[in-house]
Simulated assay, not measured.
Amino acid sequence: MKRTHLPLNGLRVLDAAARHLSFTRAADELAVTPAAVGQQIRALEDMLGVVLFRRTPKGLELTPETQAGLNALRAGFLEFEEAVRAMQAGQSSLSLTIAAPRDITCKWLQPRLAAYASGHPGLKLALVAADEAIDFTEANLDIAIRLASDAGEHEGVALGEPLFVTVEAANGGPDQRIDWPGCPLGDSPAVLRVADAGLAIEAAATGFGRATVPAMLVEADLADRRVRAVGNPVAASQSYWLIAPLPQWRQKKVKTLVEALTA
């Protein structure tokens, strides 16, 4: 069934003017001029084909037509407010679905989410492994992390500097390269190929050789002295990005998480 076009702005002005029985006080409430209130009321009267107010020596009076519809109008506005609250509830809920490559989830994201969750009682998280293309529609995601040169078609923010560092076991290791998809090419032969940078770090820690990985991914292992750096960090073309389509990016719960992860 086709819905009747509702002049919502005019009806909102009508509600305020009826409560105050004054265009001036209604204008103050709505932050417009009394003239604008009068124009809205006249336009509404023309559309409805009825007189909504009568001017008397004592001020404005409601006509029977206005009185007949006022209760239903106000009940309708209450329903609108409830609908808005219901729609906002999903955006401000304590449920977040995050897609990220397995290596950054294990090495970087999970510890930070644990700290974030400790300050947000009731938080429910769903972590989805996503090493390739991310489909926000199919997976019903709120936000994702990917290794890329920019945010691409989505909104986003870089999580750190685009730096890579080469690491080896804490007590040293052979000058042999540990390879992984996305690893910058090195001069030494690859002794081992693994699925991601996280596994490359683990292989380096156990003495297989040297792994060149994103600097932010290996921060904790360097701090714990599980591995040691070989040479200085080098600039890279890619870094980790937090990304989401604009509707998800605007959600309060996503904004709050982004602020926490980029603090």
Rank of each mutant, 00 (worst) to 15 (best):
L147T: 00
A130T: 11
L141H: 06
D135N: 15
V157D: 05
A130V: 11
E132H: 08
D150T: 00
D142A: 09
R177Y: 07
V157M: 12
D150K: 05
E161R: 14
D175P: 00
I145E: 01
L141M: 06
G160L: 06
A169M: 03
H154E: 12
V165Y: 01
E153Y: 00
A151T: 03
I143K: 12
A133G: 00
I178G: 08
A133M: 08
D131V: 00
V167A: 02
G172M: 05
L159R: 02
D179V: 03
G173E: 04
D150P: 01
E132Q: 13
G173S: 14
Q176K: 11
S149A: 15
T166W: 01
A170N: 14
L147D: 12
D179S: 14
L163V: 06
H154C: 13
E168F: 02
N171E: 14
A129H: 12
D179Y: 06
A148R: 06
D179I: 01
T137H: 11
R146H: 14
E153P: 02
P174G: 07
A129W: 04
I145V: 12
A144R: 05
A144M: 10
D135K: 07
T166G: 01
D150R: 05
F136E: 06
G152Y: 08
I178F: 04
I145R: 05
E138L: 12
G172H: 07
D142N: 13
E138W: 01
A144E: 10
